[in-house]
Amino acid sequence: MTRDAQRTILLTGVNGQVGFELARSLQGLGKVVALDRTGLDLSDLDQIRQVVRDVKPSLIVNPAAYTAVDKAESDVDAAMRANGEAPGLLAEEAKRLGAALVHYSTDYVFDGTKEGAYVEDDAVNPQNVYGKTKLAGEQAIAASGCDHLIFRTSWVYGARGKNFLLTMLRLGAERDELSVVGDQMGAPTWSNTIATLTANVLAQAVAADDGWWSGKSGLYHLTAGGSTSWAGFAKTIFELSSSEKKPQVRDIPAASYPTPAQRPSNSRMSNDKLYAAFGVRAPDWREALRLCLTTR
């Protein structure tokens, strides 16, 4: 990533939860070309190639993805194209241009059977199509040889789009009691946190010499601090929310709420490598949630 004053950053998925936040947090690091699905559709590989060659970015930031986890079970080709093939193509084009790529992956590459927090070197074993396609994207990027950062995150929520936070607030206004899975653990991660830490890391790249990427390229976990269950997340949403109506949240086992895609029981991931490499650490999930609810 050059230190040219005309540095261009190509941002995908600008209307998504993370993309929307990145469009703001990346300001000041270069000229941001932020595209929604109409401008760059990850299902259209020819368009991807053409857009990258037209824009000629020195950095590509790719939060766009196929994120319908349950639908992916029956829509395998579309999920693989967006999550596996498209990131690989972005990486190939980045390599051709001498550009760098920032990409986002998921806790769902793991099977959830580990007792403690997953680290980057732990064996992957995705249990659903979404996880398998995201893993394929990781592997394609690594195989391309381009300068890259892959950030695995988890349980992403924000003040826009479709996510657990907004679903709970909507259902909580309608019902007196909610049944929520209590035996799956992870770290709810605010989309703003992901964008802010990404921008912090990339600011370090901008300020560094040309050898920065060769020393820092690789895979990192990036989630909020701490962990909870989905039920614990829901209870805290209502605890911190300004809504007058506070429904009761009843813990249920995942087996009582079957879904087409199997979710890992343990999605906790260690952020120690991220901190060691870049000196950044996400806030605790409760504090981030409190801020999100204050600013929404």
Results as ranks from 00 to 15, higher is better:
residue 89 L to G: 05
residue 77 D to N: 15
residue 6 Q to T: 10
residue 43 S to M: 04
residue 150 I to Q: 01
residue 42 L to R: 05
residue 76 V to N: 14
residue 111 D to T: 05
residue 214 S to W: 03
residue 48 I to E: 03
residue 154 S to E: 11
residue 5 A to C: 13
residue 178 L to H: 08
residue 234 A to I: 07
residue 168 M to H: 10
residue 217 S to D: 11
residue 268 R to D: 10
residue 241 S to I: 03
residue 66 Y to P: 02
residue 78 A to L: 05
residue 285 W to H: 07
residue 60 I to H: 02
residue 241 S to T: 09
residue 221 H to P: 00
residue 227 S to L: 02
residue 4 D to Q: 14
residue 17 Q to R: 04
residue 294 T to K: 14
residue 170 R to M: 14
residue 55 V to Q: 13
residue 77 D to W: 14
residue 177 E to P: 04
residue 292 C to L: 00
residue 78 A to N: 11
residue 235 K to G: 12
residue 129 V to E: 14
residue 65 A to Y: 02
residue 287 E to N: 05
residue 260 P to V: 13
residue 93 E to K: 13
residue 54 D to I: 11
residue 266 N to K: 02
residue 26 L to G: 08
residue 88 G to P: 08
residue 30 G to T: 13
residue 179 S to L: 15
residue 226 G to R: 02
residue 223 T to E: 07
residue 244 E to I: 05
residue 250 R to C: 06
residue 158 G to F: 04
residue 184 Q to T: 03
residue 256 S to W: 04
residue 143 A to P: 01
residue 118 Y to V: 01
residue 242 S to L: 11
residue 63 P to Y: 15
residue 35 L to K: 02
residue 29 L to T: 12
residue 254 A to I: 15
residue 214 S to P: 08
residue 78 A to W: 06
residue 73 E to Y: 10
residue 9 I to Q: 07
residue 235 K to M: 14
residue 135 L to H: 00
residue 271 N to R: 08
residue 127 Q to G: 06
residue 264 P to E: 13
residue 255 A to G: 12
residue 62 N to T: 10
residue 241 S to H: 11
residue 184 Q to K: 01
residue 202 L to Q: 01
residue 63 P to G: 15
residue 216 K to C: 12
residue 214 S to C: 09
residue 223 T to S: 14
residue 244 E to C: 00
residue 133 T to Q: 02
residue 2 T to F: 06
residue 69 V to A: 13
residue 80 M to V: 00
residue 10 L to N: 04
residue 240 L to I: 05
residue 15 N to I: 07
residue 143 A to Q: 07
residue 99 A to N: 05
residue 35 L to W: 12
residue 149 L to R: 00
residue 47 Q to G: 09
residue 30 G to C: 15
residue 108 Y to K: 08
residue 292 C to T: 07
residue 145 G to L: 08
residue 14 V to R: 02
residue 203 A to M: 09
residue 230 W to Y: 15
residue 273 K to E: 11
residue 78 A to Y: 05
residue 266 N to G: 11
residue 18 V to T: 12
residue 192 N to H: 06
residue 18 V to R: 11
residue 31 K to N: 15
residue 194 I to T: 03
residue 52 V to W: 03
residue 196 T to F: 00
residue 71 K to G: 11
residue 10 L to R: 01
residue 29 L to E: 04
residue 189 T to E: 11
residue 205 A to K: 01
residue 21 E to G: 06
residue 9 I to L: 12
residue 241 S to K: 10
residue 62 N to F: 15
residue 172 G to A: 00
residue 96 R to V: 04
residue 34 A to G: 13
residue 88 G to M: 05
residue 110 F to P: 11
residue 100 A to P: 01
residue 203 A to W: 04
residue 23 A to E: 03
residue 31 K to Q: 15
residue 32 V to I: 15
residue 53 R to D: 09
residue 60 I to W: 00
residue 129 V to G: 10
residue 151 F to E: 03
residue 47 Q to S: 08
residue 165 L to Q: 04
residue 168 M to E: 12
residue 33 V to T: 15
residue 232 G to W: 01
residue 296 R to A: 11
residue 33 V to E: 15
residue 38 T to C: 14
residue 261 A to F: 12
residue 284 D to I: 08
residue 123 A to K: 09
residue 263 R to C: 07
residue 267 S to P: 04
residue 25 S to E: 15
residue 273 K to I: 09
residue 193 T to M: 15
residue 132 K to S: 09
residue 257 Y to A: 07
residue 208 A to E: 11
residue 217 S to M: 06
residue 46 D to E: 06
residue 120 E to C: 02
residue 152 R to H: 06
residue 281 R to M: 12
residue 260 P to N: 13
residue 72 A to E: 12
residue 274 L to A: 04
residue 157 Y to N: 02
residue 227 S to A: 07
